[in-house]
Design a protein around this nucleic acid. Structure first.
Lengths: 217, 217
DNA sequence: TCTCAATGCAACTTCTAGTTGCGATAGGCT
DNA sequence: AGCCTATCGCAACTAGAAGTTGCATTGAGA
């Protein structure tokens, strides 16, 4: 967009500071007013900046929110390999819980599943982050299967969803605080289910008899 | 609210039909535009009604949405008592999954956890519904404990949250379709976890050592 | 058929989104 | 230190949706 090779591409300290303030203010407003009630003027005031300053940097309300969230998309959840499924899953679950901890994490994560999640860019980012996490985490489960720690038919994706579900439940439904204990509990539940053979492939899909009528009347 | 004993309390068929159309249109708009993008004029047009007709019946946008959702709050989830924990839980989970099935159910449930969920009336309704469901479902677990089907220390609330989590995960996070198989899978996971003793009281809370510092730095 | 409550319509006010032109200012560079 | 200019603040706009009001019109029920 910018930075012509010889052009006057000076980052300009003033602008950088203002933009950072606006982004922080956007997350704060997102957290305590929500996307639906977020106003550009409110963000500007909170950032100690004039409304036009916001509009000069961002096309509209949506791209302001998208950009403020985008900063924190970096999934960066690694692929643990401790040699035991329990500690590996604990690392994964704690990393997920961690990403929802603190005002910023909570603001970002809840916003991504609120009405702001309908913005195409957010929806796509969500898909990307999820695909990335599954891709990184899958080896953890396949290795555990190879080691004989889990039933051979265990479905990695199903297991990871089972691991994530109790954590997201706290974030989005029950609004209970999310701590390490939350993650550890999710691990216990998931492992018990996996060892009992409840997470084998196809266990979560309906086995439709022949017939093409899937819609309800 | 209305119906003074001798007053001119005629329900007036025309009004009833218009109101029903507006409520239905509100849910439809909620489903395919979301609360943040929902406009009163949009709802009115969709209902084949003039904007002022909406404002004569509802104070503002918020109460329109609240009222449209309120129709469907009736939790009406019964207390199954089949004599076996598995079938009882299956009944509970399927009833929950059922409430998220079909366009109306999906619209209502997702809206309650979207930005509309920040409206005080919605937040309170959510608490009421949850409290009611837990109250009705708790005997199912205590009976199972008495029958020796579950560990004696099993925490009923923790178990019910574990049961609900995978279903809400599909509704709010993964957006996978919700079917009976989803509910049945949730039952398998929950039972495996409960039987393994992962849902005993206090298993989900951090055991803080003495000290008053709970906030993060 | 006749009535009156409820709707349709137009014309408002207010609020926020988003835009534009100009003068003020502060950060970077010499 | 002092200039240069990109960026900011400010005021004054347009556009659209929220919400309101007065009056004419219509249709369900007695």
């Amino acid at each position: 967009m910018e930075s012509g090779s010889s052009g006057p591409t000076r980052p300009v300290g003033r602008g950088r500071k203002a933009q950072a303030a606006v982004r922080a203010a956007t997350l704060a407003e997102l957290l305590d007013r929500g996307y639906a009630e977020l106003t550009v003027e409110g963000v500007a005031q909170r950032a100690g900046v004039h409304k036009t300053t916001v509009y000069r940097r961002w096309k509209d309300r949506a791209s302001l929110v998208v950009d403020a969230l985008a900063e924190h998309f970096a999934a960066d959840i690694p692929t643990p390999d401790t040699g035991a499924i329990e500690t590996d899953l604990r690392a994964l679950a704690r990393a997920l819980a961690q990403s929802m901890t603190g005002p910023v994490g909570r603001a970002v994560q809840t916003a991504m599943y609120s009405d702001a999640g309908r913005l195409p860019e957010i929806a796509e980012a969500r898909r990307r982050v999820f695909a990335d996490r599954f891709r990184r985490a899958e080896p953890v489960i396949t290795r555990a299967i190879e080691r004989g720690e889990l039933p051979a038919e265990t479905d990695p994706v199903e297991l990871l969803k089972t691991l994530a579900a109790p954590i997201y439940f706290r974030l989005l439904v029950s609004a209970d605080p999310i701590e390490e204990a939350t993650a550890d509990q999710a691990v216990r539940i998931t492992l018990a289910a996996a060892r009992a053979g409840a997470l084998v492939q196809g266990s979560a899909v309906a086995v439709k008899a022949a017939g093409a009528d899937a819609d309800q009347p």
